[in-house]
Amino acid sequence: MSDTPQPSITTRSLNLWYAKFQALIDVSADIKHGLITSLIGPSGCGKTTLLRCFNRVNERYGYVTTTGEIKLLGKNIYDPDVSLVELRKTVGMVFQRPNPLPISVYENVVFGLRIHHERSQLTRAMLDEAVEKALTEVGLWDDLKDRLNARATSLQLEQQQKLCIARLLPLKPEIILMDEPCSALDVEGTRGIEELMFALKGRYTLVVVTHNMSQARRASDECIFMLLGRIIEHSRTEDLFLTPKHPKTAEYIEGRYG
């Protein structure tokens, strides 16, 4: 196992209920460090719920009960000494609809820095540098360097989604969770985001929920197939698509249901 990277997310017998409905059943998975792992499966199978467990957003809703263990980078995130603030700083999330804040591009990128630092710690030079670095990393710098004061909501959708990713980067996250990041985008936009995912992998662990089978196939290293709250199959993407072990997986990827 020397060539396989260390897992950065580990779950053990994770169960989750929305009130009486059990959305996750005995989920145990090791998501490897620095790879793109995609979560696929039909609607309502628990992909998004699982994704949202990793930065504990689910528990904002009072009726959610969780049992089991989730370890991120070796630390159980349900330990009492875990600070939600620090956890969410390390685990960034990108949503289905781009959700830039209705402020300037510049302020969107430095928003996290401003939240997590004392005002006196931040100099203009630091902020400028962070903006340039983050926007360069997501490939927006050349397009937007002259429009940093433009309203973020006035950008094209693809740019907005990239900006939402850039907004996470100054906080130096380790894990980026993406919930159908391309479903609001057209083909060009999707390609742009996928190229960005490739560029980000290695430094960050990416977990991507997608409904798009070919996207999972193109743009991920490992694939987790879920059905009715359980993990059915988890393997390298090529293996899962070429030689699925479980008949349900085979039917799903051939498009017989879903």
Partner: peptide, 10 residues
């Protein structure tokens, strides 16, 4: 690693 995600003074 076990000190991850713990509270900082800030």
């Amino acid at each position: 690693t076990n000190q991850r995600f713990t509270e900082t003074p800030l």
